[in-house]
Amino acid sequence: MDSSQIKHFDYIFTGTGLAALMTVYKMVQSGDFEHKSILLLDENLKKTNDRTWCFWEKNETIWNSIISKKWDWALFANENFKRDLDLKPYQYNQIRGLDFYNFVFESLSKHQNITFLNEKVTDINELETHVFVGTEENRYTADYVFNSIYTKAFAESQSKYPVLQQHFVGWFVKTDVEIFNPKQATFMDFSVEQKGNTRFMYVLPTSKTEALVEYTLFSEKLLPKEEYETEIDNYLKNLGIESYEILEKEQGSIPMTCFPFWEKNTKRVLNIGTAGGWTKASTGYTFRNSDKKSSELVEFLQDSILLNLKDFHQKNRFWFYDLLLLDILYRHNELGSSIFSSLFKKGNPALIFKFLDEETTLLEDFQVILKCPKVPFIKALFRVVFR
């Protein structure tokens, strides 16, 4: 292909997952990028409800119109105790993937400077003055590229930083009996058999007879699909549900690692989303972190005249806290239930959420951390510091 025929854009987004779409949506809302040409490339058309995102929030957000359900209460449980958590001043919010995609794409379609192409990205090559992006069909160039295509090998081909997976299978079920409490989400129920891992059930009821019931593990290895499904079926039976209909299924595996993905960033290519370490490493939560990071990125692009995308990432102390927890769970995966139980048994839910959102003061950090079992964290601290 003649280089004169290669179409040039100011910005190219390779992959149109949560992080990319949040960032482009906020660029549009700011009104500061109308003169910039933006290309979105993805092999997936984003026409299916492929995932469910949840996040806690105190205030109204720009996503309020697509929140499908809110909960003011949550349940935490293990084999020994149950605790009803009053989430105030927070609410736990649910957004369906398809509702998010439709909302964002409808907004972007009104702007002529934005192009979406259903093409699979094959390579990204940075030169001194621009970046080449190749797809199976075409080649493009851009001043800057924002990549959210996750490269598994980066994290999993090294041994310095542990890599766990938050892996799950979920069923949207409709029951014949009124069994669920639609005002309360089950945040973590560790009463299921742990089998040497960190395993829990996660339940999001939308009515007395409908809920998303998800079997989740924080562990290194995935299970055969039938094992997740057997556990969900057993859990429903233990709740007293003999008859139910499966309306939808979802499954996923989210990497949980403190691997410094940002070290792969260059002057003109920035990794975003899971590919850029935007997923909260200790919990696998993605929505809230991506919401904050995408706002920071748009502000960074607005404020910088001579962009060097390597300058965007700033490491903080919460990265180090996550590293300690993942080190423990990687070596002793069976400790997950006791660690999370120690946090939620007597801890203030609002303070825990604030801590997980990385918004606490140093004093508040210690109030949360001191609830955790001391010995595993002290050992992890020595391992990490002297590694």
Results as ranks from 00 to 15, higher is better:
E226V: 08
K195G: 05
T122C: 12
L222R: 14
E178K: 14
P205W: 01
G252K: 09
W171G: 05
V121W: 03
Q184T: 11
T186G: 00
Y144H: 13
E156H: 12
E242M: 09
Y202H: 07
L236Q: 03
A153G: 04
L217N: 07
F200Y: 03
L217C: 13
F200W: 04
I149Y: 03
E136D: 09
Q251V: 02
P162F: 01
E250Q: 15
F187Q: 03
P205S: 02
Q251F: 09
V133E: 11
E250A: 06
K208E: 15
E226Q: 13
V121E: 05
K237E: 00
T115E: 11
S207L: 10
L223Y: 08
L117R: 14
S157F: 00
T141Y: 05
L223G: 07
K110I: 06
Y150T: 04
K221C: 02
Q194T: 02
K195W: 00
T115V: 14
L239E: 06
E245K: 14
G170Y: 10
Q184P: 07
L212Y: 08
L164E: 05
V177G: 08
T230A: 12
E227N: 11
D176M: 08
Y140Q: 04
E242D: 15
H130S: 13
F190N: 10
K237R: 14
N147C: 15
F116T: 01
V169H: 12
W171I: 01
K195M: 08
T209W: 01
N118G: 07
E242Y: 03
S253C: 14
P205I: 12
V177C: 10
V173P: 04
Y150C: 06
Y235R: 07
E128T: 12
F180S: 08
G170R: 11
D189W: 05
